[in-house]
């Protein structure tokens, strides 16, 4: 579905991506896990054609994002839930996005319903809590009914009720056959819903495996994803301490 292969990118003197490679399969929730600065957001921006990688490719069904027509009908994304014009209502935000893909206004009302925005959709987005913004971001990502979804830290700022809703929602989306890539720096959020995880550090994928495999220890017992993650990213954390963060 989505294939990332050998991405390399530098911001000034900092190497943000250093041979990032992994795949995202249809019908699965793929967790994209790593410490802040490991290159998760940069990878997503490169997949979406927003940032240019110096080397490597990121293809959606074999096509570069930049070559997609009506791209939101192929890939839905949520990078920054706060990327909203404060004085524009949620509904109008979705309307310009729908217009950009030639989608009818009816579809806007559908995703408002799906994301649980409800009557808040007619309020200005500037007054939204982060949780509401995340729901609006999910609505925007689903607008084009895409087969693939890229969600960057969608749990941030959500209240417990929202987190539970989001987990169920992501499972439903994968159950519909969509490829769902969800990044997080918190393990527990994804432990129960991800089918597979890609663990990143220092701008590359350290491990890519089914969650069940990662949680199994060499002696046969089951550890938390967090424990697996900590072991695998120990080097990356050291690196972070020396080099500072890359957003």
């Amino acid at each position: 579905m989505i294939v990332v292969n050998g991405l390399r990118k530098r911001f000034g003197r900092t190497l943000a991506l250093d041979g990032m490679s992994f795949g995202v399969a249809a019908g699965q929730v793929t967790g994209f896990i790593g410490p802040n600065g490991a290159g998760k957001s940069t990878t997503m921006r490169v997949i979406l054609g927003l940032d240019r990688a110096e080397e490597g490719t990121a293809l959606i069904d074999g096509q570069a994002y930049r070559s997609l027509r009506r791209p939101l009908t192929r890939v839905g994304s949520l990078l920054d839930a706060s990327a909203l014009q404060p004085s524009r209502t949620a509904r109008n935000h979705l309307r310009w996005l729908a217009d950009s893909q030639g989608l009818p206004a009816r579809r806007v009302d559908e995703v408002i319903e799906l994301s649980g925005l409800g009557s808040a959709a007619r309020r200005r987005a500037g007054g939204f809590s982060l949780g509401m913004r995340q729901r609006l971001g999910i609505a925007a990502a689903l607008l084009g009914d895409p087969a693939a979804l890229l969600l960057d830290e969608p749990f941030n700022g959500m209240d417990p009720e929202g987190i539970i809703w989001m987990r169920g929602f992501l499972r439903t989306l994968a159950g519909q056959g969509r490829a769902v890539l969800v990044s997080s720096h918190l393990m527990n959020e994804l432990q129960d819903i991800a089918d597979r995880v890609v663990i990143v550090g220092r701008g590359r994928a350290i491990a890519e495996a089914p969650v069940a495999d990662l949680r199994r220890t060499p002696d046969g017992s089951v550890r938390s994803l967090e424990a697996a993650y900590l072991e695998l990213t120990r080097d990356a954390v050291d690196y972070r301490a020396h080099s500072g963060e890359v957003a």
Partner: peptide, 18 residues
């Protein structure tokens, strides 16, 4: 510039990569 300030330009560009 309001789109750059809020990060909306990324949304705009993901909707129209050209």
């Amino acid at each position: 510039t309001a789109e750059y300030r809020r990060g909306i330009m990324r949304t705009t560009m993901s909707a129209q990569p050209r």
